[in-house]
Amino acid sequence: MDLVSPNPGLIFWTAITFLILLFILKKYAWKPILKAVNDRENSIESALLRAEAVREEMSRLTSENESLLKQARAERDTILAEATKVKNQIIADAKEAAQKEGARQLEIARIEINNQKAIAMADVKNQVAALSLDIAEKVLRKQFEDQKKQDELVRDLLKDVKLS
């Protein structure tokens, strides 16, 4: 019967001890420990969430980069194509212009040459005429130095003249 009849002294001391223990541990151990554990759990969770968000952001950025790159490449291609076109155009234009200019120059040169040729021909003609006259004069003068010859010529000339 001793076993199941609680001793009031032990009840008293147990109650006091337990309540003091509860009070001290609650204030200085359980609350700080549970708070620290909770804080850590929260921080881990928020860190995980943040990591997830960052990963999403990263993938978003990567895809954005890729599309930007693609766009840039396409733009570069169009620019290059355009530039080639423009270059060809310029070359063609320049060729055409050069051809035109050349033709014009040639034309001018030809005209000039013709002019010069004409002038030169005229000159030559004049000179030939003058020279011929000179020569003729000199020849005539030589021929007609003696009278006899003059007379002969007149005769000849007269012979040719047929009086109709």
Binding site: L3, P6, A15, F18
Partner: peptide
């Protein structure tokens, strides 16, 4: 294993 102690705890 003492009933006084388990009594106190159970009473709390």
């Amino acid at each position: 294993g003492n009933i006084a102690v388990t009594f106190t705890l159970a009473f709390i």
